[in-house]
Design a protein around this nucleic acid. Structure first.
Length: 700
DNA sequence: GAGCACTGC
């Protein structure tokens, strides 16, 4: 601790903070900014008038940094120094230094918009540009203006972004604190390789044979490439002549590995053995692997993007930014001087790479964030002109308003409704919040809580797809898991949880049925949290069966599907006349299909339900709806009328010229001769189709 | 008939 570079700047930092409300700190890796800034300000009296809050984009970071600071100050964790993350608040009224995730601070600002418990707010790792940190930047800028002079803001950022943040805060001072990294030699390829798997393989084996000891970290884009490279490396290492070089262990590292596989990289290798770690960008920031001396950087990353006009997500392999490239290189210099092999030429780095990664706020659906901002009721703030460091497109903001309007969170003038206010109390995506509120009205809240919790945990629920036996979980005939009773995935998720519930939450049941124990326990936690919030909101005394051992009935399913329809009014699709493709109704109409992993299947006549709601549109090999639920046409009708009446201009508070959603004759019609021209009379046409289908079937 | 990087309330 004594040698941390930041401590040499203590005087300078304190002096600058004293004179300015906002200060940007450029602190490179190893500078100690996350643990020391709070202590420096504490030593100089900034905890006398309030608490120092330090936000982190990740839960583990908030906990581990708080723990370190408590140790350094020699106080018990949770008293003078504490942390707050979802499900876990380890602070008391005594707490002076509080580490928390950016999401928790946003939640706090709902109940205390002035955040006046805090004398100082430090937004750490702001260069990562998480959605929540970006919103906090805007809110904090406003608070600096409103709150008296006893409020200080510090923002930590990366070299390439510092000036920009400073400009955002009217040219506030920028302090540079050097890191404690060893020099890293950067080596560029002459040209982009044809196959970066083969190229990484060659470079890695070269290092292994020629270079002194030290682990090799290789950045790839995803699980598939990682597995390919791992097996190629294993092959190659085996074929090297015995005794010609040291031993090697090869580890894959990515998010869908079970935690016990991930932590293997933290145990030191046996002597005279080199480790190869083939990783996604999880090793860029989230996990730090000690002992790495060589980094191989493919120059690519897989990134999730959102298209606001189609409502569709996609995962694309794209070029990394300069900030990311430098972050990756830095991973080689933590223990001693290292080398970074970039599989691209210098000119590509210099001319093609963006300076910084496109912030999340410009790549995701903003429905939740816009609702959050609306619920703050800031009189001086117009959402569409909210002061963002990097503003999202107006198209993206209008998309958010449109979605919120479809699910009744805002009215036709864009004002937040009573329902919208209630929704913002729930830590969920808007469509899930809306589902819960509707379910509370119609008497299926218990079931809705389960489904919503299951959906929020979905990524941690399913096992990694490497086990072939579990690949077809949903369609295996010998699987004991319920099948959704013909209504689709939401009902199946409900049934799965109820099955587990009946075993009294037996972990063995999870293993036998291919569900991750950790994921299911998370579902239980989320469900409990949501249940507590709904207890406060509920109009009647809530009877939520938390541990009822009884299965839901068909009638329950029906109520639940109806609530899901209201909650997903922004995510409805109508089946095509003669085949089982669907067209989306709430966005620019597009042809989509039910994802093959869905349990929703065709009826005896070979036809899928006429209407479905979906949880997510994702474009992979083709556009798919993931997690679908069959709904009745009668429930869809009023929503369709609302969609037709939509006036986006009015929603965004502008004048109200007529604005018609392109409803028909879209791309879809061009590509597909079977597309119905108008969607009136759908019923009769579907009936006709069914007859034709049956006739064909009869002929065979 | 497909398979998804990483976070968070």
């Amino acid at each position: 601790m004594a040698n941390l570079p930041i401590l040499q700047f203590e005087e300078k930092i304190v002096e600058t903070v004293e004179k300015n409300s906002v200060v940007v700190i450029i602190g490179e890796t190893g500078s100690g900014k996350s643990t020391q800034l709070s202590q420096i300000l504490h030593r100089h009296g900034y905890t006398k008038s309030g608490v120092i809050a330090i936000t982190q984009p990740r839960r583990v970071a908030a906990v581990s940094v708080a723990r370190r600071v408590a140790q350094e100050l020699d106080v018990p964790l949770g008293e003078d120094v504490g942390y707050a993350i979802r499900f876990e608040d380890r602070t008391t009224s005594k707490t002076r230094i509080k580490y928390l995730t950016d999401g928790v601070l946003l939640r706090e600002s709902l109940s205390n918009p002035m955040l006046d418990d805090y004398s100082v707010i430090i937004l750490d790792e702001a260069h990562e540009r998480s959605l929540n940190t970006d919103i906090l930047l805007g809110l904090v800028k406003r608070l600096v203006r409103i709150r008296a002079s006893n409020f200080k803001v510090l923002i930590t950022s990366a070299t390439l972004d510092g000036e920009k943040v400073s400009e955002f805060f009217s040219g506030c001072p920028v302090l540079n604190v050097p890191g404690k990294l060893y020099p890293v030699e950067i080596l560029y390829s002459k040209e982009r390789p044809v196959s970066y798997i083969e190229s990484s393989l060659k470079v890695a084996i070269d290092i292994h044979v020629r270079e002194p000891e030290g682990d090799i970290l290789i950045f790839m884009t995803g699980q598939d490439d990682i597995e390919k490279l791992v097996s190629r490396l294993e092959e190659k290492v085996r074929s090297l002549a015995e005794g010609s070089c040291m031993d090697a262990i090869i580890y894959p590292l990515h998010g869908s590995l079970p935690p016990e596989m991930q932590v293997r990289v933290f145990s030191p290798p046996p002597p005279n053995c080199r480790r190869f770690i083939v990783s996604t960008n999880i090793a860029e920031t989230s996990l730090t692997v000690d002992g790495v001396v060589y980094v191989i950087d493919s120059g690519y990353v897989k990134q999730r993007q959102y298209n606001p006009s189609s409502g569709m997500f996609s995962l694309d392999v794209i070029q990394i930014s300069k900030v990311q490239a430098n972050q990756r290189a830095g991973r080689a210099g933590r223990t001693r001087p290292g080398k970074c092999y970039r599989l691209y030429p210098l000119a590509v780095y210099r001319d093609d790479f963006l300076d910084a990664t496109i912030p999340e706020i410009q790549r995701t659906s903003l429905a939740g964030s816009v609702l959050y901002l609306k619920s703050l009721d800031l009189p001086d703030i117009d959402i569409l002109k909210f002061d963002f460091l990097d503003a999202p497109s107006s198209e993206s903001l209008e998309d958010a308003l449109k979605q919120l309007y479809f699910i009744d969170a805002i009215d036709e003038n864009g004002a937040i409704t009573r329902i919208g206010r209630t929704m913002s109390d729930l830590p969920l995506e808007p469509s899930l919040s809306r589902t819960l509120i509707e379910a509370n009205e119609t008497g299926c809240l218990s079931q809705a809580l389960t489904v919503v919790a299951m959906l929020s945990a979905e990524t941690t629920l399913l096992p990694a797809r490497s086990k072939p036996s579990e690949k077809k979980r949903k369609h295996d005939d010998d699987s004991n898991l319920p099948n959704g009773s013909g209504y689709g995935d939401h009902i199946q998720l409900l049934q799965i949880f109820e099955s587990w519930d009946r075993t009294n939450y037996d972990p063995v049941w999870c293993k036998e049925n291919g569900m991750q124990v950790r994921g299911m326990v998370f579902v239980k936690d989320v469900r409990r949290q949501l249940c507590q919030i709904m207890q406060k909101i509920s109009k009647d005394r809530l009877e939520v069966r938390a541990d009822g051992r009884k299965s839901s009935s068909r009638d329950d399913y029906r109520k639940l599907r109806k609530a899901l329809c209201v909650g997903n009014a922004n995510q409805i699709a109508e089946r095509m006349l003669r085949h089982n493709g669907y067209r989306t109704l709430s966005f620019q109409s597009q042809l989509v299909q039910v994802h093959p992993s869905s349990v929703l299947s065709a009826d005896n006549d070979g036809m899928m339900p006429n209407y479905v709601v979906y949880h997510e549109l994702i474009s992979t090999t083709r556009p798919f709806m993931r997690n679908v639920c069959a709904v009745d046409m009668a429930w869809v009708a009023p929503i369709k009328r609302k969609i037709e009446k939509l006036n986006v201009r009015k929603l965004s508070g502008g004048p109200a010229p007529s604005f018609k959603v392109p409803e028909e004759k879209t791309e879809l019609s061009k590509n597909n001769a079977e597309t119905p021209a108008v969607s009136e009379n759908v019923e009769s046409r579907i009936e006709a189709a069914r007859e034709r289908f049956l006739a064909r079937k009869g002929q065979k």
